[in-house]
Nucleic acid binder design. Structure first.
Lengths: 214, 214, 214, 214
DNA sequence: GATGAATGAGGGTTCATTCAT
DNA sequence: CATGAATGAACCCTCATTCAT
């Protein structure tokens, strides 16, 4: 928080990772070559390797950043309200915003990032990412327990499994809403936003204290 | 459904697509090269291009086949019982089985296969896949309407949006259960099967007529 | 020895390995790129990888071939005469010819090819090379034992250590003769051939039955 | 030999060349990058080029230093004894020690450093190296002539060709002993040291005044 | 109809070297 | 003087695809 001076390094890293992020977003990680990133960022290919050990590290840094942002979204969502349903929806829309900003990472959450407990090959960024993930879970545990205490959430749920189920359900819903946007619009006359709103309510219904909600 | 005569062709196609399926399952689509498929199928690389225009078409055929199988699973699930909850769970486990058999396609449902209404570039197989998808939806519409009529499902739901939400929710849940199996086991002492069971119940809860179910 | 038909493959392999050999000879292995080999052989870079798994295999094939040739040289040298000294010199000049044909391998004999008994990573060609090496040693054991029996070679030598010492001595001598040819010519007015002749006699002297020889 | 004043420069050069030497020894010249040297020496990569024109010059300085050390070894070997055989063996073990300290240079002696009389491209260090080489030869000439005079060495040898032959023979022997250490141990139950001892005797035998020695 | 043969284009990565500051 | 920053060129290798036979 005090020292400056060594920031220049970071500017270049930001330039590069920023370009990479753009491209990952547009074309996906696999279809983005280091060449592409070099061109987009305005550096030479070799320069990329001055600032990042390899493509893997570049990705892991982006993933970490995105995870940090996700934490921020969720943390803010929870701090902005006291009502369980309101908080829930704010979390949901935080997720949507997050997906719009980091679509490439969203996939990873569901696919790749398989925190492989046996593997010894871990980049520091990957460890940090994992750690933030755990902090997010802690946030959500508190949120759910609060909801139960207030009587707004069914007391018979198991907290951790519920959180993980929600991860799956919400991310799946958002992905479908995004990828099939045109189809949904055409088939049921619902905008992505409306469809998501409907889906979020549905999911919320699964944990409410009684059937009257939603 | 009638024509014979030209079946020998189909044998070769089957051999090739069969080999491809094996490899896609084992290593994923991206990591399977046409070379691999040639070796596995026993044909020469060039022969692959006699039977399939390119890798894309080969994939699309597999996707079509998998979609057909998914239809079969769901159709059978519905025919084996009359009880809504039972039927629902059979559908869920059909999906799990499907994901285990065609993991590479499962991703596609959520990510890639963006039936792009504007694109003019459509393989016939993609159209057929889309069509089967619609038939599956029809099946599910009937299922939901039946459940409502029996009073087991909330009457205030919107059928189509609910179906699509369920697609997202269920596939997301299954993916998380699969990819984080080790983590889930370690963190909450639940096997993949138990976790899924919990999640399926949670999701079912979102549409039941009252809060007493699950 | 009978089947033909599959020879075409070998033509391309020969073309490629031939080009590689030329380049390795001219510039050394390290300084010869697959690109160079592609250009020299007239094939595209990708084609190289159709016929050889990688650079390593290409090298190992060349090494194997050269080892085979060395075996032939030595075997012929021994079969062409009965006199120990004559045989010895024929072996020496066989080595010289060999070095002129496969200079890149000559280095390997002394440097790299460290048959690493622990390593499990062995190309089949490497094993074959090693095996031929052993056969060559067998040839030389017989040669030495014969010379001892005839009374032309000191009976107090240890056969195997002597053979290995000779490997080192002869190859070292030949290398110096080759690399410092100009210097030797200038400094002592001896052609490479004369210098080698002198050196070979010197070495032979080290094992002769009495001091009168050379 | 006199100037001072500009020594600070030399400290940096020493630091750098020292680091390079360490790395060359550990990983070989080819596998040591300027980056590695920069890191090891604690200077920045660019600074390396302040003190050395390029990698080649850096190497040539090291080669020069090693040549100087070789001179010292041989010079000391000769001064420590009067007996020819003793002196010979001391030289041999000096060479072994030298090879252990400067393995990367040992190769060069036999391979690369082709003092190319036609080339106009000579670093001053290369000239100095060459010059020390000549001095070493002078030392050896004296040594041999002395041995002849004492009657311990055959009088019919040609001094210069013998010296050069010995260079080749000894260096070849040492290289084989080093690179095939494991093989020699296993195949003939001789340690590197024992094998070398045997080989050195063998070589000595080639110039002794009669056959009785060794 | 089936394939042996070939390849252009591109993948990630490394390296010795330069130059403005 | 020392270096942070940058790079062109090269490296080995892979892939989907084509085409003459």
């Amino acid at each position: 928080m005090a020292r400056r001076k060594k920031e220049p390094q970071n500017i270049h890293r930001k330039n590069i990772s920023g370009a990479a992020e753009q491209l990952f977003m547009k074309k996906g990680i696999e279809n983005t070559s280091m060449n592409d990133i070099a061109k987009e960022s305005g550096y030479s290919k070799a320069t990329l390797y001055v600032y990042f050990k390899n493509k893997e590290e570049l990705i892991s840094v982006l993933v970490l950043e995105s995870m940090q942002k996700l934490y921020d979204y969720i943390s803010r969502a929870l701090s902005e309200s006291d009502d369980t349903k309101e908080r829930y929806l704010k979390i949901c829309y935080g997720l949507v915003k997050y997906q719009e900003e980091f679509p490439f990472y969203f996939q990873m959450v569901l696919e790749t990032i398989n925190i492989d407990f046996e593997s010894t090959h871990f980049l520091p960024e990957e460890k940090a990412t994992f750690s933030i993930g755990e902090q997010i879970n802690d946030l959500l545990v508190t949120f759910l327990e609060n909801g139960i205490r207030c009587g707004q959430i069914r007391p018979d749920i198991e907290v951790l499994p519920t959180i993980y189920s929600f991860w799956g359900m919400l991310s799946g819903l958002i992905q479908i809403a995004t990828n099939k946007e045109a189809y949904i619009e055409q088939r049921m006359g619902k905008s992505k936003k409306d469809f998501l709103s409907y889906g979020f309510d549905l999911i919320y219904h699964s944990i409410t204290a009684d059937g009257r909600e939603a």
